[in-house]
Design a protein around this nucleic acid. Structure first.
Lengths: 245, 245
DNA sequence: AGCTCTGGCTTGTTTGTACAAGTTCGCCTA
DNA sequence: TAGGCGAACTTGTACAAACAAGCCAGAGCT
């Protein structure tokens, strides 16, 4: 662990513990540098990390202030339903309901950087939290990863983790589109809600470290089961609003 | 504009223009430093900006790669419906349907850092895109900003901008919770949809530069009108999934 | 009392240097 | 031909120094 990560971790703990309550001022960079025997630049990297997490805010000339004290999860926990569920103390389970190969559609070819007509793997999964069905996942995997996906246990808990352990695949980058849709008849049946009832939809495309697209997915959460949370500031915000399509 | 922002802007333009297509490698830091006659540290700040926007990805030892080419909007455009709409080429309008003062509830007192029972301003607004109603905003303003809000034109297009111009208020930080809900009867009537149809809900709390909460709001978008988009990576992601509440 | 202004404090930007750690690719060998 | 090895390249981390720019409180003035 890098020095600046240690410092960030230490400060984060202090904030979560309540040493610096919401609204309080953080020590100045100079003081922190002295306290941790580090250069000012290193301290700045640490607090930049906390700022990116939305825990502290800063303005030129004024001391940094604490904005929040909730610890935010890692990328892995956002990407992987199972890892997120586990970290929240839920028991996650899932079932593959169907899995078949087919040629990709033109729009999928674009999103997954495939040749038109190249083969993809289409998987329908139902995910549960503590036994309750909360999520229908319709995922399209690029052909080159399909064999590894097909080898997975249909009841496999964490696809992300299994793929990492079996073929060393790392999901590194993702783009997510979030909106609301009405439950179709299949959604309704699987999630045990009425047809037309509101679902939170997350469409995503995930790529490897090298920027190679792996999968795109249409995930639908039962209303009330899951909420997305974003902290942002004038400095940095990756969340954008888009016109409906 | 700082040097690193200029460099970032230049690189961003090149990416958007297609000089560096998706999947392509960016020049090395050393080469960029030479090209822009800047120190390597300055170049690193520039590409860090692009990485935070999700435009490029990076791994130690390998060249940076281009992940996307869409320009993401600024915080102001996320926060302000009107500014976002304008930047997307839509015509935004809005109407205040009701506005009244009342004592705050216990939960509001916590979220807005108020004394229990302190007065707040409750505003119901309907927002339109190109004349079509797409958003119902139920906003609660802290008492200290209420007078300035009440002075606003009921048809005021951009509340954010007006408050900045009239009292110098800057919305600097925000926390957003996103989920899906069914339209209530009032929602349905205002948005011209059927009761129970899906809406995308964004609950937010916004604070000033000093960390002082200004408003909390419950915004409901008609399904299909607006999508939220997030790019993230293993390095940084402010978006988190939360259990429903 | 209320106002202005200034000086010190704090964060922001930039440059330079050095080394650590991971990737890539060509060369050499078995 | 397949595999291993290593050199060159590239990004990550850390330190030091200097100046710019913005904030704030206290001194001093009206």
């Amino acid at each position: 662990m890098a020095r600046y990560e240690q410092i960030a971790s230490d400060l984060r703990d202090a904030i979560v513990r309540g040493d610096y309550p919401i609204g309080a001022q953080l020590p100045s960079e100079a003081e922190l540098a002295l306290r941790y025997s580090a250069a000012r630049g290193t301290v700045r990297q640490a607090v930049a990390l906390l700022a990116a997490e939305g825990l502290v805010g800063s303005r030129q000339g004024a001391r940094r202030i604490v904005l929040g004290s909730e610890r935010s999860q890692s990328f892995a926990e956002l990407h992987s339903f199972a890892q997120w569920a586990r970290s929240m103390g839920y028991r996650a389970s899932g079932t593959v309901l169907s899995s078949r190969r087919r040629p990709c559609s033109p729009s999928e070819a674009v999103r997954l950087s495939l040749e038109p007509g190249e083969e993809v793997l289409d998987v329908l999964r139902l995910r549960r939290l503590d036994g309750e069905p909360v999520l229908v996942e319709r995922t399209v995997y690029a052909g080159w990863i399909a064999p590894a996906v097909e080898r997975l246990d249909p009841e496999c808990e964490s696809v992300t983790q299994e793929l990492y352990e079996s073929v060393g695949l790392v999901f590194a980058y993702g783009e997510h589109l979030i909106d609301a849709v009405a439950a179709g008849s299949e959604d309704a049946r699987l999630l045990d809600v009425r047809r037309g009832s509101p679902l939170l939809r997350q469409r995503r495309v995930t790529t490897t470290q090298e920027g190679r697209p792996v999968e795109c997915s249409d995930d639908r959460y039962r209303a009330g089961s899951v909420t997305f949370s974003i902290r942002n500031s004038t400095a940095a915000n990756p969340l954008v609003r888009r016109a409906g399509d």
